[in-house]
Design a protein around this nucleic acid. Structure first.
Lengths: 346, 346
DNA sequence: GATGACTGTGGAACTGGTTCCAAACCTAAT
DNA sequence: ATTAGGTTTGGAACCAGTTCCACAGTCATC
């Protein structure tokens, strides 16, 4: 029972149990070809010696590391959004006896693919079986990862500059439909002057804007995009944009914000101008981060099922590993409109 | 240059370069015993064959996986605080050519150590060299990890139920001094009726309370702890506790909150009671999470250098690995009082 | 010219598992 | 009793690296 400080090998166990090394291996991998008694004897010896098999040795033969890399690209810090995705990846992985390695990478979108200096774990061979790409993903890093023949799955919402190209596995959620639904809801609540607040330079905001615009047009309403320059952050963007919204004639009765942070900035600024939410202006966000629920009133927003996205990434990567030649697939997970306290019925 | 899909081994390279396998190994490990010309020839062959060494094979011999596990215990999700620490761990690790595996674990503090079902990565042998413990850490999990002879470093602030025991490596920050300094600062600003808001069941809040109390006593002021029962969350706790603070006679002029979330809840509630911060009540938090800066007015709080803590954890773990018999050490990193807009001079 | 010190190199032996083949063993049918 | 079919089992060969020992070559010294 007392664990001997390492170095018990399969051969020690074989000797102790009076069987061959092959038998130990068969017991460890529960490949049924072992008699009841022998198995029992081997298990007893394993326990007695405190034997723990060395996974490295197995991996050489299996040509699998049972490990995937969660690669966060071009982010200064592990944003709660990505942290939740990582968690989803880990939860699915652990159920499948797979491991998750965390790595970060910074690169310029303009650097040639072959010049990208990948993390050490990707430079060596055999350490990981595949990669899950999070953070902001530009085409060059995809090329780079393909150049080392490493299977990967990307978070499609964060891929920039590859619109419509589907030559890789991706998982994401439906930006367009989410804002489309939400805008229809606002219209259903009697709102007509609805503006959209975000910087559509980012493709995800563009898609969210498109959904909003579609709903507006279908109802013969004029879509309006409000934006600001030189914002320090999304919250700052929201604060800057508030001015423009309030000065519009007629004054908007509702705002669809590109994400929760913009909505928060907006809310701060509106409050400072003594404009009541939702009494005077209704507000919806996007993402449903923790803090949305804690605003006052709590923010109505679009929930993105981050854990589920992470799980699906992991699942898809495993499928790819088991079936390297299958066609590329893209999975779009639904979002959910969470009604809280920032939308008023007119 | 074109990468052959794997399976080039060191022997292929040896043949291609017309040298022995040992020489390839020597070139790879830059152990200087190779002549200029041979090294050049080998490097050329490596490049031509697109050879990437298999790290698994090396690891068997080295008896090192060059990987550590970041183990998050008993947390429902990867809280931003821990995400920052993970990031610090990763940044230091990548500089040292080490890898970081992310794993989560849930266990009861009351379950016997040997019954704790460790993540798969810890059950096998050779996958990781050591563990960094984050999340809430109870003594039984330390015993469990010791039982498999796995070196570890713990985030000391999150260890519960081992007060004063120092039989393991730990990194943390100084709860006591932080609130001590902050309380002295408030007193210096003319405050006398200062209360502390947190549930001191948690040892870290107890330590923060102790720092606060010490400063109060040194100035002949009466320390007051306000608390609430059955709070759903820290924010909720802050909201619940606001009532009690406002009903005190004389009314407190400043509150030291156990953390930023409590401070935020407090702030929400005060705002609803039309009590102005900092005009009527000053407020300081603890942690300096992202959102503190975004409150209105921005929250004065105690900054914890999370990345640095993560880096130090990783550094200490590597020291332990290189020197298994060194005495256990505990490193306490300083905090920093960040003055923003929620404290008023009386 | 012999001796010694040193550098550079080849390759066998090794790490700790898995895999596969052949042999041993056990039934049951001919 | 012999043969055929199946199940167990031992152990050599293997995976892809590292390590170490022996040997070759070079140069300086005696």
């Amino acid at each position: 029972m007392e664990a001997v400080p390492q170095k018990t090998t399969i051969r020690d166990v074989a000797r102790a149990a009076g069987v061959g090394v092959g038998t130990i291996s068969r017991v460890l991998n529960s490949s049924s070809q072992v008699s009841r008694e022998t198995r029992a004897r081997v298990l007893k010896a394993i326990r007695r010696l405190g034997f723990r098999p060395n996974a490295q040795a197995r991996r050489i033969l299996r040509r699998r590391s049972e490990t995937v890399c969660f690669l966060l690209s071009n982010r200064d810090f592990l944003h709660p959004f990505h942290a939740r995705i990582l968690q989803g990846v880990e939860s699915y992985a652990s159920g499948m006896k797979q491991h998750v390695l965390f790595a970060a990478l910074h690169y310029s979108p303009r650097i040639p693919a072959e010049k990208i200096d990948l993390p050490h774990v990707l430079q060596e061979h055999g350490l990981i079986d595949g990669v899950i790409l999070a953070g902001t993903i530009y085409p060059n890093v995809l090329r780079r990862i393909e150049s080392i023949h490493m299977p990967y799955v990307a978070l499609s919402n964060n891929v920039v500059g590859m619109e419509g190209k589907n030559q890789f596995d991706q998982v994401g959620f439906d930006d367009f439909s989410a804002t489309f639904e939400v805008t229809r809801y606002l219209i259903g609540e009697g709102h007509k002057e609805i503006v959209f607040a975000a910087d559509i330079y980012f493709p995800w905001f563009q898609r969210r804007f498109d959904g909003y615009r579609q709903a507006m047009r279908e109802n013969k309403l004029k879509p309006v995009l409000v934006s600001a320059r030189k914002a320090q952050s999304f919250v700052d963007f929201g604060q800057k944009v508030a001015q423009r919204i309030l000065s519009r004639q007629p004054r908007p009765t509702a705002v669809v914000a590109g994400n929760d942070e913009i909505a928060y900035g907006l809310w701060l600024s509106l409050r400072r101008h003594a404009v009541k939410v939702p009494d005077e202006i209704s507000l919806v966000g996007f993402d449903d981060r923790e803090e949305a629920m804690l605003m006052d009133p709590p923010l109505s927003t679009i929930r993105v099922h981050k854990e589920e996205i992470g799980q699906t990434c992991m699942k898809m990567l495993l499928e790819r590993l088991h079936n390297p030649n299958m066609a590329f697939s893209q999975r779009i997970l639904p979002t959910e409109f969470v009604i809280r306290g920032t939308v008023r019925h007119l």
